[in-house]
């Protein structure tokens, strides 16, 4: 019985890791390289500030709000999405930079 439960846990963990992914998004020219992203729960977006100015990554979507503060040129920030839903992400400095993320 214990062996069976461990096996189940292992399969579940393996399956979770198998579908989790990391998507890279660049910010050069005050533009996110993606406008819409679909992710599975547990996946991440790696925001790479390859621009020459400071940016920001935040969301005010209810239940998914986060804010990483200032992201200077050259900095990389990874944000993981822990539950399903639709999340709008913006740069607070350059609000035309925005992404719609669908987490399934």
């Amino acid at each position: 019985m214990r062996l069976s439960m461990l096996a189940t846990a292992f399969v579940f963990a393996f399956a979770t890791n198998a579908i989790a992914a990391e998507v890279a998004v660049t910010q050069k020219g005050r533009k996110f390289s993606e406008k819409k992203i679909e992710l599975s729960v547990g996946s991440s977006i790696k925001f790479i500030n390859d621009d020459d100015v400071t940016h920001n990554i935040h969301s005010t979507t209810k239940g998914y709000a986060f804010d990483v503060g200032a992201q200077k040129p050259g900095q990389t920030i990874v944000h993981t999405f822990g539950k399903a839903g639709k999340v709008k992400i913006r740069c607070a400095i350059h609000p035309k930079m925005k992404i719609k993320v669908t987490v399934k």
């Binding site: 400071t54 920001n56 935040h58 804010d67 503060g69 200032a70 607070a92 400095i93």
Partner: peptide, 12 residues
């Protein structure tokens, strides 16, 4: 200005 809305960034 925007510092009153976005409070965690000096640049705002």
């Amino acid at each position: 200005g925007r510092g009153g809305v976005v409070k965690n960034m000096v640049k705002m």
